[in-house]
Design a protein around this nucleic acid. Structure first.
Lengths: 237, 237
DNA sequence: CGAATAGTTGATGTATCTCAAGCAGGGTGG
DNA sequence: CCACCCTGCTTGAGATACATCAACTATTCG
């Protein structure tokens, strides 16, 4: 059973936004093939593990999580997909994960055969895959070797992509080094992404709050008071 | 400092083995571009994290591990590369991992620019990447959600690829369900791959031996007496 | 307003880590 | 050829980070 038809709902009119660089070719290629743009609400299943993988998806807007389940119900969120990322590409015939929206999203669904036929699309897909593989490497380090506090700190830093990298500009002089972020994930989803329990995630967040490093504005709206401080807790610095 | 020149040593004569399917095109493409085949001994560094990623590698024979280090020395082996796999492809300019041989290997080094220019090569690379991403998803489940015993059992099952999958044929009737495998990794490397300590890996292996599920022939030569039994300990069944 | 859902906090348990000692195999040199 | 050393592995005892279980609180939404 691929795709929740009741929620896939209104296939929104194909509205291609302006793009740049290699994106331009991709968009052109997309236009030429059988592409459908969909709007989905939050917490909606896009596909299940084991479904026939006959379509690939490009996320235009919002966030999607990919997760796997063990037979006894343990869950691991393996990837969090953001705008311009592609998901649902497989070497095999069926999806290897479940895909579920975290927020309301706009996705483009592309027929697999057509995507495979287009050279431009291949190039775009490969680029996406390379980024994802790199992210997975980083995530393996987190899951295999980091403490609970380091995992949560690393998770928070995901939302401040311009900081923490090798070319981190550091805090701007004269400004408070703060940043408001929207998690758009429940504690359970965060826990399943970080390989922790909901209670441990909660405790770490409470601790960061107590230490004044963050403030909780509204459960999943978090104000990082000190980006550098959080960054130093990731274990990577 | 890319590549240990002292060990890259003799660039062996380019010997292309017979290939099938899409592989054929790839081999032809490889022949046409600047490709160099190298033989390296076991435990040799191919590249370091941060090196300029100007070449990609195809493993012809042997095994390679990719690993990342945290500043305090914690290590995570993020991928184990086998024959026909490609590694060292990046979206960015530098390698994101260290690459080290586990066994003596034969690798083909391809100039990155040329690989990017060839459509056939792109197709091959994409296929490899898809497989690797799927493997990483599986590994994330292992690292995030499995117990030490389940991790070691899953690791052992890696060496019996025809079993444990969705189309597992089960044990052959009338034969003992056993299998001799070569780990070609030290306990430390296994531990760093599974996100455990060397002692925990050792204890789990000892326990499997005590329960008669495996026999240790020679440290890294393990006889699985009961493949089905090990498979049931992976947590995935 | 009240039920339902999501998140927090505390007390306790346990799987795995850490530290420490002993053991085994493989290679070297006397 | 055998003793010795070196390295990698195993085993034990104790510590600890995180999980589990359970109660309570906050938020959301009808």
């Amino acid at each position: 059973m691929a795709y929740h038809e009741h929620s896939a709902a209104v296939a929104a009119p194909l509205r291609l936004q302006p793009t740049v660089g290699v994106e331009r070719d991709w968009a052109a290629a997309a236009r030429a093939t059988r592409v459908k743009t969909h709007r989905l609400p939050a917490h909606d299943v896009i596909y299940y593990e084991g479904d026939a993988a006959d379509r690939i998806f490009e996320l235009i807007e919002g966030a999607v999580m990919l997760y796997k389940l063990l037979p006894d119900g343990r869950r691991q969120v393996v990837e969090i997909i953001g705008p311009n990322d592609v998901f649902g590409m497989l070497a095999s015939k069926t999806y290897d994960c479940n895909a579920e929206t975290l927020t309301p999203v706009v996705v483009r669904a592309i027929d697999r055969r057509e995507a495979e036929a287009s050279v431009e699309m291949q190039r775009h897909l490969t680029l996406c895959l390379l980024g994802q593989l790199e992210t997975m490497h980083e995530h393996a380090v987190l899951l295999g070797r980091k403490s609970a506090a380091e995992r949560v700190a690393s998770f928070l830093m995901r939302f401040v992509p311009e900081r923490g990298g090798p070319d981190c500009p550091g805090p701007r002089q004269g400004t408070k080094d703060e940043r408001l972020i929207m998690l758009s994930m429940t504690r359970q989803e965060i826990a399943d992404y970080l390989g922790l329990t909901i209670e441990t995630v909660s405790r770490v967040i409470s601790d960061l709050k107590r230490r004044g490093l963050i403030a909780i504005e509204k459960q999943d709206r978090i104000l990082i008071n000190n980006v550098c401080g959080i960054c130093q807790l990731t274990g990577a610095q």
